[in-house]
Write a protein that binds this DNA or RNA. Structure first.
Lengths: 315, 315
DNA sequence: TTGTAGGCGTTATCAA
DNA sequence: TTGATAACGCCTACAA
């Protein structure tokens, strides 16, 4: 007990005892067993994070933000990827709850009923990250995918484009993509423009898909004057393909992207895009989670971290 | 005890008891406490991973590979980033050992003496990932940065380039970069070419650094006919800058990169590079670690996963 | 096949 | 300020 105190609350132990303990710790290379500590105190310093994919650099920024904050506060981070499936997410959540994590951060905002029930029973705080969902489990830290897509579409409209193509990642089981799509439609509607299905495309992720989308839209009869690639690296693939073909952007077709990937600013021409607070989402998520864990806050919470349009020469 | 058995070794319990337990588990939403399990059995299912940076997409591939294998085997993954510093790595390792992880995967191959001592005392298996180091702590799964850089340099020599520039990331405290640099030098030496300091540059990571390196080498008096960017996205920055300036590659200067970033193949012209088994490194690391944890293997081990040159139009 | 006893390494609590 | 005792929830070992 005295050792425990000397290590956790050194001020509550005599200097002499403290010194002896420190010496002994050094001598034997003692590393306290936090499993036992957690079991005894029913407090854990581990946070569980479930992202659709670790490999995706956008999520990676968020993870880095989370990791930085947790490290500073002496917490550990457990990660699992759900591969974009709610069942895998449920499995990950179950595993984390088995490890008695102190809190969860989930990127997806759609969960299996069982996953929700487990989290409720565990009674631990949760942050959702993917989009400013209307039905949060608990806390949300994100930006509005709907508003971001709408703002970019309006930006294009303001620039005079009238036949705006929209390329999205798969809409199924992903509230983020659906939000973006609805934002696009909302902007058109407010502008009194018709929705033309020949201008809308759903494609898998990846550079190659961006290239393919470019051709399909240009040759699909919709005659787009601009294309808004609402996902990942799609716009990069398309922009590079224009370079390859010697097509002038935005004269041939304007191109807009959805994320502040460094590279977009280095392309020729640099590509208009949205700045999304990826790292900030991670940092704030970790912070609000720790606030709750440490009893500094209670109750639901929704933090809108906003976005920003970066206007460049491609539009 | 019967419940424990029903859950872990259902075949050793009567069907009737099994059914009753399953029913009860469902009814109360019971999630076994793995902390208590680990404490009692002194076995853990958690693996600790320390990478220099989570945000870097190259490490992200490796992490994904690790995560996939661990998930399939019912193990969890704890992550920390060392920010490229051995002291931060040591702190992460200490935290992981406190959590009684079953094994460690470290990307860096240089560690503080204290970190090494702690790992030794803990007696858990370790895999190092960054390069085929000669003095592994325990197991290594990687490729040879030295050989890869040498091979690419020789490739350029074979193509007839004689004044080959070399751009590296910071050499301090990073065996990988030093290995690459030595590989470059070895190739020159074997070819009987002099080492010209005007052709070698050390820069920070990032697209912009690649652009800057391009100019500094072209204007530095070394008159390179090819530049080998031995790190990350440096080559992308340089290649895009050539596009922007309308410089022909490889006529103006040939460009070679060091990693199989998808994008390199989509640039104009596509950029020659090395294919490195990033994901495979992650998968194999997890596999050999599990082999040891589950007692299927013992002793040191070095797995060389090789690399491959992807010759494209930029050289 | 089922159950009992004891202990894993901490921390909460209370007593000295 | 220090120490004794009893959990925490599971698993090992052994007994019924």
């Amino acid at each position: 007990m005295t050792v425990s105190r000397a290590l956790k609350t050194p001020e509550r132990v005599s200097p002499e005892v403290r010194a002896r303990v420190e010496e002994a710790v050094r001598a034997v290379g003692y590393v306290p067993n936090r499993l036992a500590g957690s079991l005894s105190s029913s407090r854990s310093s581990v946070i569980g994070l479930v992202v659709p994919s670790i490999e995706n650099s956008l999520f990676a920024s968020t993870i880095q933000g989370i990791s930085d904050v947790l490290r500073r506060h002496g917490h550990e981070l457990m990660i699992a990827s759900s591969g974009y499936g709610a069942a895998a997410e449920e499995a990950a959540i179950r595993a984390f709850l088995g490890q008695r994590v102190a809190g969860l951060i989930l990127h997806d905002t759609t969960h299996t009923p069982e996953a929700v029930a487990m989290i409720r029973r565990a009674g631990i705080p949760v942050v959702e990250n993917g989009t400013l969902t209307r039905q949060p489990l608990d806390m949300v830290v994100s930006y509005s995918n709907h508003d971001a897509a709408k703002a970019m579409t309006q930006h294009l409209l303001r620039l005079g484009y009238r036949r705006i193509g929209f390329v999205t990642l798969p809409l199924a089981a992903n509230e983020r993509s659906r939000d973006r799509r609805r934002g696009y439609e909302a902007a058109l509607e407010e502008a009194g423009l018709p929705y033309d299905p020949r201008l809308v495309l759903e494609v898998p992720p990846g550079l190659a898909a961006g290239v393919e989308a470019l051709y399909r839209l240009l040759e699909g009869g919709g005659e787009p004057d601009a294309i808004f690639f609402a996902g990942d690296v799609l716009a990069i693939g398309a922009a590079l393909e224009c370079t390859r073909r010697g097509w002038k952007v935005p004269e041939k077709v304007a191109i807009a992207a959805f994320d502040n990937i460094d590279l977009l600013g280095h392309l020729v021409p640099p590509v208009t895009t949205l700045r999304l607070p990826r790292q900030e989402i991670g940092r704030r998520s970790a912070e609000v989670l720790l606030d709750r864990i440490q009893g500094r806050a209670t109750g639901p919470l929704a933090i809108d971290l906003r976005f920003e349009i970066i206007h460049r020469a491609s539009t």
